[in-house]
Nucleic acid binder design. Structure first.
Length: 290
DNA sequence: AACCGGGTCAACCGCTGGAAA
DNA sequence: GTTTCCAGCGGTTGACCCGGT
């Protein structure tokens, strides 16, 4: 699923990054630890929005931060990245997190992928501080009930297993199957399906009219995708998406760092339609996460 | 007001796997 | 084949907060 996509994408992007990263001067600077100050946050945010993160170990040097790259990466991913949802989990998120945990176990990053705007760290913390207890409680009450029942007629263990299997099916296959002959399949043959959910911050900026548009946040540093815009209430039609897909993704902008389709399919244009086979049912409100 | 204990969550640590040198 | 470097992941820690006594 998404993890495959990420992994595959990662390889090529890392290759490029490492070429430029390896052997570079490593300033042996003192590394500050502990909480980030607002000034540090601003510096990191400004730097990444303007330059992308490239090689994380170079980010603190170039951004003028007394932190190590790992710390910068974590701060960006867990706190500064656009689209981060903060605050209490909704009932839906909570239910989903519990179901996912029942299936995936402590695979926080995978669980977080299904909870748009939530980070693995946040999911993990939420689980450890709240959901774990909730689940334990419900298990205790369930086992108490079970002891009152005839196990031959009502097997909770069996039900739980069935629920897990059903959920697995939903989790693994309720995604969009890629078109067989898609350009996407180039080099990614093991990729089975695609999630319907996309993050707005992967692809969208927002213009002054409140319309979502395909443009980079850094004023269009080489991202040639600024020619079509949508009202966020719209359902994207195939035509809209083809218009999007036909924009060529050039490198150099900050969004390339978040979502690097160039590496996915070589130098060809990024074809969303081919990804999904049928993106016409893509609901801006439901399937695009802000 | 002071102390204590539990809860929360941001950040660190250590490990793994992949790629380049 | 080995070493080095990197990103990413899950586990753990510790500072801070807050309610109870």
């Amino acid at each position: 699923m998404v993890s495959n996509f990420r992994t595959q994408r990662k390889f090529s992007e890392n290759r490029k990054r490492r070429m430029g990263c390896r052997g570079s001067e490593k300033a042996k600077m003192k590394c500050k630890k502990g909480l980030w100050s607002p000034e540090e946050d601003q510096r990191l945010k400004d730097y990444i929005l303007n330059h992308g993160y490239g090689c994380w170990s170079e980010v603190p040097v170039k951004a003028g931060l007394e932190r190590n790259g790992k710390s910068c990466r974590l701060r960006w991913i867990n706190y500064l990245r656009p689209g981060i949802k903060r605050g209490k989990f909704s009932q839906e998120e909570e239910d989903l997190a519990m179901k996912l945990h029942a299936v995936l176990g402590n695979k926080w990053s995978q669980i977080a992928m299904h909870l748009p705007g939530r980070t693995d760290n946040e999911v993990k913390n939420y689980w450890n501080t709240y959901l774990k207890k909730k689940v334990k409680k419900s298990e205790e009450s369930a086992s108490a009930k079970l002891s009152d029942h005839n196990p031959s007629t009502d097997s909770s263990a069996e039900n739980y297993k069935n629920k897990q299997e059903n959920f697995n099916k939903i989790l693994l296959f309720d995604t969009i199957e890629p078109a067989e002959s898609s350009s996407y399949s180039h080099g990614f043959s093991q990729q089975k399906s695609w999630p319907k959910v996309m993050f707005a911050d992967w692809i969208f900026g927002e213009n002054s009219d409140g319309l979502l548009s395909l443009e980079s946040s850094d004023g269009g540093k080489g991202l040639a995708w600024d020619s079509c815009s949508f009202d966020s209430r719209e359902t994207l039609s195939n035509g809209d998406l083809r218009a999007m897909s036909n924009q060529e993704f050039a490198e150099g902008g900050s969004y390339v760092s978040c979502f690097e389709p160039v590496d996915l399919i070589g130098s060809d244009s990024f074809d969303l339609l081919s990804f999904g086979g049928n993106f016409g049912g893509f609901e801006m409100n439901q399937d695009l996460m802000f």
